[in-house]
């Protein structure tokens, strides 16, 4: 044999590459499976251009009213309760005025106002930095404005958590299942190692239902299509004074906080 080792390796490599390459070609030419079928939206599906929420804290009379809302969401979506805040997962929660609208500290603000509670959740921004950051499009923006998560695709890099300026995202540091008190069959649980957050209940919108939190809020959370001039959210946002969290960052949050509350359209 007059070939040296280098030539031998080179030829072996070429044969391997040829084999792998041709197997790709063969599978490429194979007929695609043919299920003459299609997909459509559910009949009850509620269409919208931009889902948005108005939070009217004047309608929440007590702690219990807020807990009811949080409970409804977290129970429905199988959000676990971890004893350790380090692993905490939350989709909707409450925080005080001072921290929710961080940045504009006013030292003369009345203690009562400063510590008055606000409901906080994912803002479903129009320009979501989390979607921009995601390297796999596991988090993406739907045509109706909802910033959704595809738990199947998330690799758990947590770039979205660094990108979100609102602290809306949680990561499954541990297996959530042992920490779910009451399991809901309406929504799957999550696998460890993926990021999750509020999804504006898109699974309920597809069934023609309002988000779970809105349903339990006694009118404190108003939900609708901001693009529809006749929707309640649009009427409130266009005629009343509302504020949003960190508007200066240009993400255009879709959660508005009604100042003063009271009667609205």
């Amino acid at each position: 044999m007059s070939i040296n080792r280098r030539q031998f390796l080179r030829r072996a490599g070429m044969v391997t590459a040829l084999g792998i390459g041709s197997s790709f070609v063969i599978t490429g030419f194979r007929k695609k499976d043919a299920a003459a079928s299609g997909y459509t939206k559910a009949a009850k599906d509620m269409p919208a251009k931009r889902w948005a929420m108005v939070v009217d804290m004047s309608k929440f009379k007590s702690e219990a009213d807020m807990e009811k809302v949080i409970e409804a969401c977290h129970k429905l979506h199988n959000v676990p309760k971890f004893p350790n805040t380090k692993d905490e997962i939350k989709w909707i929660w409450k925080d005080d005025y001072h921290h929710t609208f961080a940045g504009g500290h006013n030292e003369y603000l009345d203690e009562h106002v400063m510590h008055s509670p606000f409901m906080v959740t994912c803002n479903h921004c129009e320009n979501p930095p989390c979607v921009r950051a995601c390297p796999t499009e596991a988090t993406f923006q739907r045509p109706d404005g909802i910033v959704a998560m595809d738990f199947h695709r998330c690799i758990g890099c947590r770039f979205c958590m660094a990108a979100c300026p609102f602290g809306a995202r949680s990561f499954n540091f541990k297996d959530p299942r042992p920490f779910i008190e009451e399991v809901s069959t309406e929504y799957p649980t999550r696998t460890p190692g993926v990021v999750e957050k509020c999804n504006f209940c898109y699974e309920r919108l597809a069934d023609g239902l309002m988000p779970a939190c809105v349903e339990k809020s006694n009118g404190g959370l108003i939900f609708g299509d901001l693009d529809d001039p006749n929707s309640e959210v649009r009427k409130i946002v266009s005629t009343k004074l509302t504020i949003r969290r960190k508007p200066e960052l240009g993400t255009q949050p879709s959660v508005y906080y009604l100042v003063g509350g009271g009667e609205h359209a």
């Binding site: 979607v131 921009r132 950051a133 995601c134 390297p135 796999t136 499009e137 596991a138 695709r153 998330c154 690799i155 758990g156 890099c157 947590r158 770039f159 990561f171 499954n172 696998t191 460890p192 190692g193 993926v194 990021v195």
Partner: peptide, 18 residues
């Protein structure tokens, strides 16, 4: 990574905005 087995998703679903 939280889901290291899915790392190839970065190549399967390339996201030039990231």
């Amino acid at each position: 990574l939280g889901q290291p087995m899915r790392i190839m998703n970065v190549i399967l679903h390339p996201s030039p905005h990231s």
